[in-house]
Amino acid sequence: MVKFLQRTYVYLIFAFLYAPIAVLIVLSFNASRSRGTWGGFTLQWYVELFQDRVIMSSLYTTLLIGITSAVIATVIGTAAAIGIHNSRGWQKKLVMNITYIPVLNPEIVTGISLMILFVFSKVQFGYLTLLLAHITFNIPYVILSVLPKLRQLKNNLYEAALDLGAEPWYAFWRVILPEIMPGVITGLLLAFTLSIDDFVVSFFTTGSGVSTLSITVYSMARRGINPKLNALSTIMFTAVLLLLLIVNLRQAREEKKGRRDNEQEKGFRIIGTVDAAGVDSEWVQSQ
């Protein structure tokens, strides 16, 4: 009986979380423009969505910025994580604290401070400013996903490679990188997702004519309801579902591989996936 009540409560919360999305998905196939009535099945809104020049060009911008910023952030972030892992004392502390600033700072403050910087240094607002801003808020998340992998690394692995005659770079490519690769890929995916999901920072750092999907949705939603947005939501939801499925299959496989991982590491991984979107509780744990 208690179990039944408990389950019902959780299902109710799920209903609360999923009902709005379900309604949007149903409405995206509704032929009648008014939301209240069902006017039959249609794909009209999807057709209109793909013919909408503004939405399509902002989709392109979103993907372009997402991929470029994720790749650059992953390179800088992985290097940074290796550096942080190998440094000690106040240097390490200082760099880690700077890493947490964009994670803890309200997005709007990150947004306006970057806007001030770009105006101050007379950079033209557009793709470049957008890219720089996205890289900036992405790097810390890459570092936070690579660092735990480095901590798991056996200390003498790198030295063993050097002893066997490997050049430092070769040892990095053939020994270190393959070992930390899961963390690097998680970081890359995280950075990409954060980038395509971002609105606030983009809103303050983009120029006229350059608009990400989030910005376009914002300006359309401000004007009220638009069936094209329902279709867009359905597509995005499906895409997210697929992406998460892939990520989790990967993780499940990894977990099977390394059952030796201690409990804490496991807990970290769950949270690591989870707090992509916000402030991390892993920060609390790492203190």
Binding site: L17, Y18, A19, P20, I21, V23, L24, L27, S34, R35, G36, T193, I196, D197, F199, L213, S214, V217, Y218, A221, G224, I225, L229, N230, L232, S233, M236, F237, V240, L241, L243, L244, T273, V274, A276, A277
Partner: peptide, 25 residues
Amino acid sequence: FVIPMWMNFLLRTYAWLTLLERNGA
């Protein structure tokens, strides 16, 4: 619990616009 969080924040908020409207769902 995580899946809805990964959908675009703007679209999630927009969803309530459709739900809460005078003639909404």
